[in-house]
Design a binder for these strands. Structure first.
Length: 985
DNA sequence: CCAGTCACG
DNA sequence: ACGTACGTGACTGGT
């Protein structure tokens, strides 16, 4: 750090990056059929790194002979090298030409691989005092990492690009061995794709363990008798020569007879030496327009034309409102009523946005490689109760802490706390001890807090004054990128703190936390005393050493959770603020977390006996149907197998039906229904399907979830959907049947407890109302304000018939069009839904847009805005990235357009009901009622209501739901009460 | 572990 | 010239 003027060199592993680029991008070719995708990908990666690193030197290494090409995933499977595909092979010389034209030195040497040259040059550069960046897709190069040499591995992920960055300590953090030891590990475990044999019976885990302990193969061999897994010891003994050979193969030669003439590698000021006319011409010939544009920018306007990502984020429709509404005060209040309802709407109304790249991109997130977590050395375990309490007492006096409650199956095992520079795991810990935290006033940051709250609940169920003390990084990360999929500590750590850490699986494997916590004996004792049945021997008692390492891993895992939560809080908050989602987070999502927690705790009462009876009643009919189907088919087969069913119907019975899916015949309900309504077997199959579904998923399926208290405590997930909706799992309570007779019967087993009834309220066409309001289409708004039957009015206007002459058929069609609009209209989709031709569907759509012109321009605006910004936005600022809009593939781009139309509508509706839920939950509690919110089904809320509180509950539901947002049309609800969910809905 | 199917909004 | 409606989760069979 003292040397401000350290220079930096970037060394690229040419074939490896070209390979990555090739498989990371769809095939692409110029008009003469020459493929160019790998060249483009390579240049993209190279320029991204150059922009980030601001280096002074650049060189690229290639193997001299590349007769085969490694494709590791494939090779790992096949055990050999696969030949390089022609489409890639032809790009190698092109790539070299492009690089030459850019004055980039190409390094290669007879008898040496690119690895060796990079190893040699990087060593020489280190010794010269240069910082080194090695860019490769190959993990073997991690052995070259040091304090000044960073190995960067670009990864191609579903969403965007990421780079894994490794200094020596990052290698250590992630792989538990030093870079030089990494060679030994690799030698022991082998690598089929590199033809490194390794030692039989030794995989990654054992290899790591041995080297972590003995530091080298040689030393391990010298201490053979100390090697723990018996199998590994014998194997190493038997295959000593193989081990040595493997080591030589795995080791990169850092002393090849090669020297890079450094001046040839020098990049001009701001990389200007790269932007030559020759290169530009070549890129034009290759028709790589994106690159040509980049070159043009640089050659004309000079280096300052670099994309300035930071500047773009100010292109934000909320900018104006922020001045008066964004007071950053984490008021635990849901203060949406006046100001922000207003500002939300204005933001939504705006349809044409200034251009900008949009949300933070993958490389922005991952560009930085910070030091391997310095806190790691401070991770420790406290087992003593008094010491644990003392620690908690200290921690709670901090301004903020990171917390991770270690639990499994609703059992409290321990808790990790990050406070100041310290992070400890308290194991075991009691609820009473944890109460020290909840009674304090420090900020508590966690990851996935909802699942940990039950252990922090001091008995007051988190009143809203308390709620603002909590910060959930997972929820914040979800808002920032709802497509990420998972929000666990390792991902959050790398994205928001720049620290790469081991994953849960790497630390703990697949073992249960309970066993790792070493509480297994207790547990076993309980089980034995509880059930006097078979004698179970303790599951292979772990030796003390194993047990010790298990505890260490558990400590590290728990502490990483807590430390990441603490470290990521501010970056996440900053990002949320920057992206104008802080209020969404503070006023809607965080309060909602508590509401969902309450709902999960509450559960819903189910009549288990009735449910079982229902299941049995289905069995009889299912058996009958099965027999009848087999009889008609003339053979016995598994009706549940689409494959077998397809064969029977379309081959054996020769029913007309084309292939529809990739794997064979489609036997889905719509195919079957169209196919042959008059063929008896089809009706039987459809009924069979319905009944087996009902039985396996709903009757038998739900019974499994009934808890001791007779209730089902499902989970409501807050970080799953792309649009902002809540999802429901274990079990899914948002798809309980309702549309059929039997479905209705099923809903009768969901009942209120004694002395209560259900009050059920659902929004009337919330999405269409959102659309009316957002589009500001006067005709649709008038339609809503004047009358009740929106579909009939639409039919009347669209089909030009008087309102009282609208037939049910016409109304149905209009309703389908309304749905189609919300889904992101397409003539083909609509034609499917209505079983009409695409042309007819198109004319419906045209007439619809003529009737409601504001909708057309709104939807176009949605697409346009999502295209320029990269994401769509809801009324309350929630974002959904729509990367599909940039794709070349027509179909996927069209999909992107439908998403861009649907997401703001579905998402705004989701925002609104979330606001309502928080309001309902809070008022039920604050007004001292016993009634509780128990379910949410997207536009519906179900409250288990004390009979005496019915009127009050109905008032609350109506006020909170209808008042959740102020739209240009009324938000109406339908409300009913009853003795079961069926009756109330 | 994925594809197909079907339950809901 | 492309061949789908938007968003979910659970269960089954088959690789």
């Amino acid at each position: 750090m003292s040397d401000q003027k350290r220079e930096k060199i970037i060394l690229i592993d040419g074939h490896s990056i070209l390979n990555r680029a090739f498989y990371g991008l769809p095939l692409l070719s110029d008009s003469e059929g020459l493929h160019t995708n790998a060249v483009l990908g390579f240049l993209n990666i190279m320029f991204r790194v150059l922009d980030e690193e601001k280096a002074q030197y650049l060189a690229v290494a290639f193997d001299l002979h590349a007769p085969t090409f490694r494709h590791k995933m494939y090779d790992a499977y096949k055990g050999t090298r696969s030949p390089m595909p022609g489409e890639l092979r032809e790009q190698v010389p092109v790539m070299k030409d492009v690089l030459r034209a850019m004055n980039v030195p190409l390094m290669s040497l007879e008898g040496f691989e690119a690895d060796d040259l990079i190893g040699t040059v990087s060593l020489a550069m280190e010794q010269k005092g240069l910082d080194v960046r090695i860019i490769s897709g190959d993990r073997d190069l991690l052995q070259l990492a040091s304090d000044t040499t960073m190995v960067r591995i670009p990864k191609t992920k579903k969403e965007g690009r990421e780079v894994e960055n490794y200094y020596a300590e990052d290698v250590k953090a992630k792989y538990l061995v030093t870079p030089s030891e990494f060679v030994d590990v690799k030698a022991l475990m082998g690598d089929a794709s590199d033809n490194i044999p390794g030692i039989p019976g030794v995989g990654e885990k054992t290899a790591t363990k041995i080297i972590a302990e003995f530091h080298s193969i040689q030393n391990a061999y010298d201490h053979l008798d100390e090697i723990k897994p018996n199998k590994a010891r014998l194997s190493l003994q038997d295959h000593w020569e193989m081990a040595q050979l493997s080591y030589r193969l795995a080791l990169i030669d850092r002393h090849a007879p090669f020297a890079l003439p450094l001046e040839q590698a020098r990049l001009g000021e701001d990389n200007s030496s790269l932007y030559t006319k020759e290169a530009m011409d070549l890129l034009k010939r290759l028709e790589l327009r994106q690159m040509v544009r980049r070159f043009a920018d640089h050659m004309q306007t000079g280096p300052s034309a670099l994309p300035a990502r930071q500047a773009e984020s100010s292109a934000n429709p909320f900018e104006e409102q922020r001045a008066d509404t964004d007071d950053t005060e984490p008021s635990g209040q849901i203060s949406l009523p006046e100001e922000s309802r207003h500002d939300g709407m204005d933001g939504f109304r705006e349809q044409v946005y200034p251009s900008g790249e949009g949300s933070r991109t993958a490389d922005e997130k991952s560009e930085s490689s910070k030091k391997a977590d310095e806190g790691a050395k401070n991770f420790r375990l406290i087992e003593d109760a008094a010491e644990a309490e003392a620690f908690l007492e200290r921690a709670v006096k901090e301004e903020k802490i990171g917390l991770y409650v270690l639990e499994e199956d609703s059992r409290l095992l321990g808790a990790a706390v990050a406070a100041g520079a310290e992070t400890v795991l308290l194991l075991p810990v009691t609820r009473k001890q944890l109460a020290i935290l909840s009674s304090g006033s420090c900020l508590i940051s966690g990851i996935n807090l909802k699942e940990q709250l039950s252990f922090l609940d001091g008995g007051d169920s988190f009143p809203k004054e308390q709620q603002s003390r909590y910060f959930d990084c997972a929820i914040g990360a979800y808002l920032l990128n709802p497509l990420a999929g998972t929000y666990v500590y390792d991902g959050i750590s790398s994205v928001y703190t720049g620290r790469l850490v081991e994953t849960r699986e790497e630390l703990l494997g697949k073992k249960s936390l309970l066993n790792l916590a070493g509480l297994a004996e207790e547990n076993l004792a309980l089980m034995m005393s509880g059930s006097a049945g078979e004698k179970r021997t303790a599951k292979k008692q772990d030796g003390p050493a194993d047990r010790e390492s298990a505890r260490q891993a558990l400590t590290r895992f728990s502490c990483l959770n807590a430390r990441t939560a603490l470290a990521a809080m501010q970056p996440i908050r900053d990002s949320l603020e920057k992206e104008d989602m802080l209020r969404l987070f503070t006023d809607i999502e965080m309060p909602l977390m508590f509401t969902l927690y309450h709902m999960q705790q509450e559960g819903i009462l189910v009549r288990g006996d009735e449910l079982r009876r229902f299941g049995h009643s289905l069995s009889g009919r299912i058996d009958e149907l099965e027999k009848a189907i087999w009889e008609q088919a003339g053979q016995q087969f598994n009706i549940n197998s689409p494959k077998q069913l397809g064969t029977v119907l379309f081959e054996d019975m020769k029913l007309p039906g084309g292939k529809k899916t990739k794997t064979g015949y489609s036997t889905s309900a719509d195919v079957l229904e169209n196919l042959a309504q008059d063929v008896p077997i089809v009706r039987l199959i459809l009924e069979y399907r319905q009944l087996t579904k009902l039985k396996s998923t709903y009757a038998d399926g739900l019974v499994q979830y009934i808890a001791e208290d007779g209730r089902i405590h499902g989970r409501f997930n807050q970080t799953v959907t792309a649009t902002g909706r809540i999802s429901s799992t274990d079990p899914n309570l948002q798809n309980i049947p309702v549309r059929t007779e039997l479905g209705a019967q099923l809903r009768k087993v969901f009942v209120p407890k004694d002395g209560s009834i259900f009050v059920d309220a659902d929004y009337s066409q919330i999405e269409l109302r959102v659309l009316a309001s957002a589009s500001d289409d006067q005709n649709l708004i008038d339609a809503y304000n004047s009358a009740e039957d929106i579909h009939a009015i639409t039919a009347s206007k669209v089909f030009h018939v008087p309102l009282d002459e609208v037939t049910p058929q016409l109304r149905r069609n209009a309703k389908a069009v309304n749905f189609g609009i919300v889904y992101g209209i397409s003539s083909f989709g609509l034609s499917q839904g209505l079983s009409i031709t695409a042309a007819e569907a198109q004319s419906y759509i045209n007439q619809y847009f003529e009737t409601y012109p504001g909708i057309k321009s709104f939807l176009d605006g949605c697409i346009q805005s999502a295209k320029t910004r990269g994401y769509s936005v809801t009324m309350f600022g929630r974002r959904r990235p729509v990367p599909e809009l940039k794709e070349k593939n027509f179909m996927r781009r069209k999909f992107g357009e439908r998403v861009a139309m649907n997401a703001p509508i579905q998402g705004t509706a989701a925002d609104i009901i979330k606001i309502a839920m928080v309001g309902v939950d809070r008022r039920l509690r604050e007004e001292g009622l016993k009634s509780r919110l128990v379910l949410q089904v997207h536009d519906e809320l179900l409250v288990e209501t004390e009979i005496s509180e019915k009127d009050q509950v109905e008032t609350i539901l109506r006020e909170e739901m209808e008042g959740a947002a102020r739209l240009r049309v009324r938000l109406e609800i339908d409300m009913k009460s009853g003795e079961s969910w069926f009756e109330a809905h």
